[in-house]
């Protein structure tokens, strides 16, 4: 057998990675309400290899549901930095995209991807379980083609993200 090149190795590991996504759901907002039907037998996301997990160190996906305020942003960054590479962030619902109905609130940040890199967004208020499953399939395609590189972007543009975080968190 020939020696495996690095690209081949990466292609195989990406193919395996996309079939076992362990998810840490950080349920700050009302979006968490749509997760129980997605997890349980009606939509059963475990058939895609996606399992809800409890600790950041063993998880691949950080699912941020709903609005993020200044207090929870601090904890989300801590959790995100505890996770091991490769890691993917999902912005769930319109609040994570642009603030949603809390766009002018004194304590809710408008854009999640200014503070941590977001790989996939789901639009909607609330996104249905079908939308969540579609998003997971989209994320799998991104992982397979090597385009889900949020954790690399975080390292490359570390100063950009840290400056934004410092501006809010002081």
């Amino acid at each position: 057998m020939d020696k495996m090149t690095e690209e081949q190795y990466r292609a195989i590991s990406n193919m395996l990675r996309k079939r076992s996504l362990w998810m840490l759901h950080y349920c700050t907002g009302c979006g968490a309400m749509e997760l129980p039907p997605t997890m349980t037998s009606r939509y059963d996301m475990e058939r895609f290899g996606i399992v809800p997990y409890v600790t950041p160190r063993q998880a691949d996906i950080l699912l941020v549901t709903g609005y993020v305020n200044v207090k929870t942003l601090k904890r989300i960054i801590t959790v995100y930095e505890q996770m091991l590479d490769p890691k993917y962030v999902i912005g769930f619902g319109s609040c994570a995209i642009n603030g949603g109905i809390y766009y002018d609130s004194y304590s809710v940040i408008n854009r999640l991807d200014a503070y941590i890199p977001v790989d996939v967004y789901i639009a909607g208020c609330m996104p249905r379980p079908e939308a969540i499953i579609t998003m997971f399939k989209h994320l799998m395609n991104l992982i397979d083609s090597g385009k889900a590189d949020g954790y690399k972007r975080y390292k490359q543009n570390y100063e950009f993200y840290k400056n934004n975080q410092r501006k809010v968190l002081g």
């Binding site: 002018d104 609130s105 004194y106 408008n110 967004y121 972007r153 490359q156 809010v168």
Partner: peptide, 25 residues
């Protein structure tokens, strides 16, 4: 409230725009 948000939080822009901005810096 709106003035406070604009002064302290990042205003909303499209995802691609942010990526480009991050790459420029």
């Amino acid at each position: 409230s709106m003035k406070y948000v604009n002064a302290h939080f990042q205003p909303f822009r499209h995802h691609d725009e942010v990526e480009l901005e991050a790459k420029d810096e």
